[in-house]
Design a protein around this nucleic acid. Sequence first.
DNA 1: CCATAATCGAGACGGTACGTCAGGTCTTATG
DNA 2: CATAAGACCTGACGTACCGTCTCGATTATGG
Lengths: 196, 196, 196, 196
Amino acid sequence: MSKSPDPARRSERSRQAVLEAARELVSEMGYAKVSIEAIAARAGVGKQTIYRWWRSKGAVIFDAFLALSQVGDSITLPDTGDIEADLKLVMRATVAEFADPGFEAPIRALTMEIVNDPDLAAQYREKLAGPVDEAKKARLRSAQRAGQIDADADLDLALELLYAPLFQRWLHRSGPLTPEYADALVDLALKALRPA
Amino acid sequence: MSKSPDPARRSERSRQAVLEAARELVSEMGYAKVSIEAIAARAGVGKQTIYRWWRSKGAVIFDAFLALSQVGDSITLPDTGDIEADLKLVMRATVAEFADPGFEAPIRALTMEIVNDPDLAAQYREKLAGPVDEAKKARLRSAQRAGQIDADADLDLALELLYAPLFQRWLHRSGPLTPEYADALVDLALKALRPA
Amino acid sequence: MSKSPDPARRSERSRQAVLEAARELVSEMGYAKVSIEAIAARAGVGKQTIYRWWRSKGAVIFDAFLALSQVGDSITLPDTGDIEADLKLVMRATVAEFADPGFEAPIRALTMEIVNDPDLAAQYREKLAGPVDEAKKARLRSAQRAGQIDADADLDLALELLYAPLFQRWLHRSGPLTPEYADALVDLALKALRPA
Amino acid sequence: MSKSPDPARRSERSRQAVLEAARELVSEMGYAKVSIEAIAARAGVGKQTIYRWWRSKGAVIFDAFLALSQVGDSITLPDTGDIEADLKLVMRATVAEFADPGFEAPIRALTMEIVNDPDLAAQYREKLAGPVDEAKKARLRSAQRAGQIDADADLDLALELLYAPLFQRWLHRSGPLTPEYADALVDLALKALRPA
DNA sequence: CCATAATCGAGACGGTACGTCAGGTCTTATG
DNA sequence: CATAAGACCTGACGTACCGTCTCGATTATGG
């Protein structure tokens, strides 16, 4: 009765080939210039096989990089007891990641999809951002317990305060992304979150 | 010597028609589904006329909304002397603007272009974000003079602290955009910017 | 190894639709004004389907009329034993055909292609002119056996002597095409071919 | 009141430049690929100047080669008293001309125009073919007077008999164009024209 | 241990849009 | 006022992909 394909019969070989081809092509020519046709050709796969298992080009590429960054069962951020030092470490790492030209294409590709497609945005929040944010909030909660951060602080807002400026600067290319920037951002955010 | 078209001979009528058609079409069907072909048809203009004066679909649409939001010679933010009240007013307005479904399509369209095209990103910063940011920084400077904000604060960073969280929440649809959110954001940011 | 399309997968329905559309359009508006775009539209076929199977507009139109005039396995000209009467009959028919306004457009279209494209000229000779000429030469050979024509005559040249004047007069519109003209031409040619 | 341009004001310099450019371009890239735009550019002339003075691309190109082959006030064919020898001489020359690859492009260009455009065909007959044919007929008339050709022969038909086979063979590329062919053709035609 | 049904690769199909070329008209400024 | 220049609208070009649709040729159970 159902018309949806039977996942049990899905060819894992084809799935992997498609995702890998997608990753390669996005890296080589940028998100916009990648076509389903090209992915199928590179993967040695029929177009129908892609259409059978993915809703759109965006979904394929999204999956491709999702699978890549798939986080383990649980992530934990460093916790030395010094929230400032720990955050600066993490933020400097994040800055470095964004500055890496190899990450440029895929992250922008992911972002494009998220801007356009609410479904993918939800999937992104659930599968990628969510777990990471949970880990970050866990570290902030630890800082709250240690009295380094206001116990009443809204941690979602706190995360935005820390990460959104960095993300926006990268997205709009509105300024340099340096370790100093990361430090300054942490300093400022922590000032905002300081216990009353 | 040059082979680029002579701007003196440009038809203002055609230029306006194209920009208006672009605006209409983006509003009606969303950025992704708009084609240069459709813009030309709607504007009653030859495709070549578009290609003569714009580099890409993105450039046209960008121009269309740029022209729309083209700010007057100078923008000034309200300055009642109370930075908190003034910022909350402005931020609530910004939140309202982002929440307005009528703005959704064009702003996402603009954002898409900026993500993809460094040239347009630069143009965006120069023509749109720049002047607005200057006005915002002017208000912050006034608050610095009034001793409401740390005199040593990096105002670029301060702006990011205020606006980036809002922008990211909208972009990723990661939370509600309410007046309360605006207030909370201002409170937090001002705490970070408070004089030492 | 080859990248050319697989003829086995070719859609006969599409092929027929294209050829018919081509014939109709040439008849309606003349060769020069027919476009591949129009043929595709009329045939309810994608442009690519035409480009996949034909090299050029000329090739399509050529095929269209080739298919139309496709001769059966063998053609035989009348043979009453009187070469003069038989030839006059055939030549009068040919004259009538050329004078028929309904044949004008397609024949001129075919001729245009032949003038420009050596490949199509070869195809024309092989598929259309060749078989017909063979039939004509068979009749002349019969006349040779009957002693009505010089046994040593070069039959290719003989055919040219008979048909080229008619064709040129039609092509250049340099004179009337009447039954009398046909008769006069036969008389003259037969005089040239008379046994020594 | 009239809208047609005043020929008196026509720029001879422009006219020459256009015709020369047309000739060059046809020789370089073949009739079909020449555009009015290219002719104008090469001639250093505004497109309008071409449209003002010529009806179509065909008319320009036609004019270009017409001007080139413009025959002097009168042409005369050799007349040694031996019609066979004289005709063979002329026909061999004609064969050579047709076989010359340098003549190929322009003659085919002219022919294309004539096939399609009755007006140009008329012009061709009047300005080019006509005078030449008159000269040929004059030679045949001389042969009639000398008793080498039937006095009652229709000279128009006689010309066709001589030249059409050659022309058709060239047009359809249906056989080699050699001096021997010229001779054979003359022999055959003269046999047809022999006095009774 | 096959039978049979879904998936697979391939790629033709009807389409839409691309970015380019040229057609023929119109405007502008020179001479 | 004809000209060189070239922008304009139009329409066709030939190409790239879209998403759908057959085709055999594998698979991979489940009867």
